[in-house]
Design a protein around this nucleic acid. Structure first.
Length: 449
RNA sequence: UCCGCCUUAGCUCAAUGGUAGAGCAUUCGACUGUUAAUCGACAGGUUGCUGGUUCGAGUCCAGCAGGCGGAGCCA
């Protein structure tokens, strides 16, 4: 019977056939331990010289890592095995023999660039395999969360006429006789969807031509962007909190094996069931000033260095990376910072009626150094105010005239947010580079493989 | 765009300005319970490129190239 490693426990003490690849081999003159990989897991095949034909034993001894093979053997319970079972091998058939596989099994991530050159092969190894399985679970959890809430999946175009957010850099592509830009957010289209379907979610890749070279940036990344009619800022925060909590719990629940392989300390992730602190930007300034003094006075040189960079942008600016790190260290939980100064935020965000210098927006800052994973807001629903902001932010009016229409024909309060899938996966898996959280990462200096 | 760091064997890294080294991987050998197996042996090099200083440069200097981390911007 042909089976997979994942289901082996259901076949105890039966003869099975496994199709896959040789992951690694240890052995002696008369006993071989083949680490066999089939994509669903890794199992040890034990092959005694006396138990198989001599030609089979010689083949098993000879073939190199990643040779494609078919194994026959009996499934045995074994407490020494990480998966509880091993295979008593009786036959091995080679599909393709390999001898020069370029990646070593002793794979930590000392030089990510060299491994990324081999990304098409590296994804077979334990660590990337585990991370990408968590990603798959995270994406599935996101889809189910919105589907179960009755949201309509509302796909936004990738080719767009112009920028959604004036400042960021866009990828230009030739488009017949003109120019198109790759989408950096589906949000504006999501707003049109929300006024048609009430609750929608845009989920797809987005593109940013930012020349960032950090552990947290990609030029192509996936973003989930819910957008809801009649949802105000508090509702946006509720939705973001509920969604993050759902996704993290699902990963903790269904990716235990993967997180074990990744040696992830899940103690902070498990705090996710507690409410997220919601701190107004103006209040956070005070918290940061206190943290700055506290870190400077601590004996820890790393914290002292961090203290120097806290509130570097001044008291009325966007929060910087040091501020986000400090917030993560202090709260050890996802923190929602709301009502930033309007001048640092995008044109479509609604102004705070209580304080016109602030926007009705929220950023969710994840702990453990990942930084911002969610940015959202209540949207400006007043036609006059939106037009003033378009002018003020120097957005091309022609390219957003359809968007302005949404404020002419049945405008209502509405809002939503965007969450970066890779940053979320980076946080959950604790992987060092966001590049590890996507199968084939695209960055400023990498387009291959 | 700016700042800092790195580039030596397939990989990870050593080497006061004075003969180019180790671990892992590969190859060969030993081993019936290994889990990144272990042990033994062989082999592996135009020290990123170009120039300079020096009796002598992997090492010092300049330029270039590639990479990494960070700032800004963002998710």
């Amino acid at each position: 019977m042909s089976v997979t490693v994942r289901t082996l426990k259901q076949h105890l003490d039966t003869e099975v056939e496994l199709k896959g690849w040789l992951y690694n081999r240890r052995g002696s003159g008369k006993l071989l331990f083949l680490q066999f990989r089939d994509g669903t897991g890794i199992v040890q095949v034990v092959m005694g010289k006396a138990d198989v034909p001599e030609a089979v034993f010689e083949t098993a001894k000879r073939i190199g890592n990643e040779s494609s093979i078919i194994i026959k053997g009996r499934v045995k319970k074994d407490d020494r095995s990480p998966i509880g079972v091993e295979i008593q091998g009786s036959d091995l058939q080679v599909i393709q023999e390999v001898h020069d596989y370029p990646i070593q099994i002793t794979e930590d991530v000392p030089n990510i660039d060299k491994l990324l050159d081999q990304r098409h092969l590296w994804i077979r190894s334990r660590t990337p395999h585990a991370i990408l399985r968590v990603r798959s679970e995270v994406v599935q959890a996101i889809r189910e969360f919105y589907y179960n809430k009755g949201f309509v999946l509302f796909d936004a175009p990738m080719f767009t006429p112009a920028s959604c957010e004036g400042t960021s850099t866009l990828f230009e592509v030739p488009y017949f006789d003109g120019t198109a830009y790759l989408s950096q957010s589906g949000q504006l289209y999501g707003e049109a969807g929300a006024l048609a379907f009430r609750d929608v979610v845009v989920f797809g890749p987005t593109f940013r031509a930012e020349k960032s070279k950090t552990r947290r940036h990609l030029t192509e990344f996936w973003m989930v962007e819910p957008e809801c009619a009649f949802l105000e800022l508090d509702g946006v925060m509720d939705l973001a909190e509920e969604q993050i909590r759902y996704v993290v719990s699902r990963a903790l629940d269904r990716c235990k094996e993967e997180l074990k392989v990744l040696e992830r300390d899940t103690s902070i992730l498990e705090q996710i069931t507690k409410p997220f602190p919601r701190v107004a930007y103006s209040e956070m300034q005070g918290v940061l000033q206190k943290l700055k003094a506290e870190f400077a006075a601590s004996g820890d040189p790393e914290k002292q260095k961090l203290a120097g960079d806290i509130l570097k942008g001044g008291l009325n600016d966007d929060l910087g990376a040091a501020d986000e790190t400090a917030i993560g260290l202090h709260y050890k939980q996802c923190v929602m910072v709301h009502r930033y100064p309007r001048h640092v935020k995008a044109f479509y965000m609604k102004k705070d009626p209580v304080d016109e210098t602030k926007a009705l927006c929220v950023d969710v800052i994840a702990p453990e150094g990942v930084g911002e994973i969610v940015g959202g807001s209540q949207r400006e629903d007043s036609l006059d105010e939106l037009q003033r902001q378009i002018e003020h932010h120097k957005v091309d009016p022609a390219s957003v005239s359809w968007f302005v229409d949404l404020r002419k024909y049945g405008s209502v309060p509405h809002g939503g947010f965007g969450m970066g899938v890779e940053r979320c996966v980076q946080w959950i898996t604790g992987c060092q580079h966001v590049r590890e959280a996507i199968p084939f990462p695209r960055t400023i200096y990498r387009l291959n493989p």
